[in-house]
Computed example of a mutant assay.
Amino acid sequence: MADKDGLKVAKDYQIDTAFGNQKAFYVKGCNNLDWGVKKHLSNIFDPKSGNTVMFAFNHGYFMGSTAGLERLDLVIPKLLPAVDVLMGTRGALRTCISPDCKNAIALRVSSCSSIINEDLSPEVMLSIWETLSA
C-alpha cells in the first residue's frame, strides 16, 4: 500500500549506484543497440567469449543434398551440443530439430521456393528484421 500517512521509512533510490543494465554488451559494436536486438544476439553469442558456432545446413534447397547431410534427422541432433546456432530452412528445421531444442535458430527466408535456372542473382534475401516488421 502507498505511504499515504508517512508511516513507512523514507525511500532510498540509491542514486549513487549505476543503473543495473548499463554494463558493456559483450558483442563488439552492439553496446547502443535496442534491448530486443541485444536479446536476440545474446541467444546467438556466447557471453564469455563473444563468439558463436553457427552450423548452416540450408544449402540443400538450391544445391541438392550435401554429401554427409542426406539424412538431417540423423546428423543434426548429434551436432547440437557443439553448436550455438542452427541455420536452416523451415522444412529442414521442422523435420530434424525437436521443438524443445535450446539452440538459437537462424531461419533462412527468401522469396524463391525453388531454383529453375543456374543463376541465383534474381533471388531476393530478406533479413529477419524485414520479415518481422512486415
Rank of each mutant, 00 (worst) to 15 (best):
T131P: 01
K78Q: 13
C30K: 11
M1S: 14
D84P: 02
T131S: 07
L72S: 09
V53G: 13
A24K: 15
A134C: 11
E70T: 09
E70A: 05
A18T: 08
G64Y: 00
C101L: 01
S114W: 02
D119N: 14
R90W: 05
I15Q: 11
G88K: 00
N117C: 08
A104P: 00
G60M: 03
K23W: 00
P47A: 15
K48R: 15
G68H: 05
R90I: 11
F45L: 03
S111T: 14
S114A: 09
G88M: 13
R108P: 00
A18G: 06
L107G: 08
L80G: 03
S42K: 00
A106C: 13
A10V: 09
I105V: 14
I15K: 12
G36N: 08
A56K: 06
I116P: 01
L132A: 14
D119P: 04
C101S: 03
P122L: 13
K4M: 04
E123D: 08
S110I: 01
L120A: 12
S98E: 15
D100P: 00
G68Q: 10
L69K: 05
T66K: 03
P122Y: 12
L132N: 11
D3S: 14
N31F: 12
G29T: 13
F25E: 10
L72K: 13
S121E: 11
A134K: 06
P122G: 06
D16K: 09
Q22E: 13
K23A: 10
G50F: 08
A134T: 12
T52M: 14
I15L: 14
S121H: 07
S114Y: 07
M87N: 06
V83C: 12
I105A: 02
E70G: 02
M54R: 07
I76H: 02
K4D: 12
G68Y: 06
S98M: 11
Q22M: 08
P122T: 13
S113I: 10
G29R: 15
S65D: 05
D100C: 01
I44M: 14
D34Y: 04
T66C: 08
R94F: 02
K23E: 12
L80K: 06
P77W: 07
C112L: 08
G68N: 01
I44Q: 03
F62V: 12
Y13M: 15
A24Q: 15
H40P: 00
G60T: 10
V109K: 01
I15E: 07
L33G: 00
A134V: 11
G91N: 08
P122H: 09
F25G: 07
S65E: 10
N51A: 14
W129T: 15
F45W: 05
S110W: 00
C30I: 02
R71T: 05
N103W: 07
C101A: 01
G88R: 04
G60Y: 02
L80H: 04
K8H: 13
P81K: 06
F19T: 10
D84W: 03
